[in-house]
C-alpha cells in the first residue's frame, strides 16, 4: 500500500460573476486537473460558485505570525492613512 499522500491544494471560489475568488478551504489531489474536479465535488455542491481556482499550498508564501507585531501594529495609530478627513460634497454619491 502506497502511503504517500497527495499534495495539498488551496481552493478559491468565485460565487458569481463580477465578484472576487475567495478562499474556501483546501483538499488533497494528485495534480491540478484532479484538484479542480475535487474542488467542484467538495466545495460547489450547494451552488456556491461559477469559477474555481486551485493552487498548490506549497506555492503560497505566508507572513510569519511571530512577526505580526512589527508587520501590522505600526498601522494601528496612523489614522491619517484613512481618507476620512475630507468633507465630501453632498453631490458626490456612492463614497
Amino acid at each position: 500500500m502506497n502511503q504517500q499522500e497527495w499534495p495539498l491544494w488551496e481552493v478559491f471560489i468565485r460565487s458569481k460573476q463580477g465578484l472576487d475568488h475567495k478562499h474556501v478551504g483546501s483538499l488533497h489531489a494528485a495534480d491540478a486537473a484532479m484538484a479542480v474536479q475535487n474542488a467542484r465535488d467538495v466545495y460547489t455542491r450547494r451552488l456556491e460558485g461559477v469559477s474555481i481556482w486551485v493552487v498548490e499550498s506549497k506555492h503560497i508564501h505566508a507572513s510569519n505570525p511571530d512577526e505580526a507585531a512589527e508587520f501590522f501594529d505600526p498601522a494601528a495609530d496612523k489614522v491619517y492613512r484613512h481618507p476620512t478627513f475630507y468633507d465630501v460634497p453632498d453631490s458626490i454619491k456612492h463614497m
Binding site: H28, D41, V42
Partner: peptide, 11 residues
C-alpha cells in the same frame, strides 16, 4: 479511498 472521492461518488 479519500474524502474527496467519497464525496464525488456520493454526489
Amino acid at each position: 479511498p479519500v474524502l474527496e472521492q467519497d464525496l464525488a461518488m456520493a454526489n
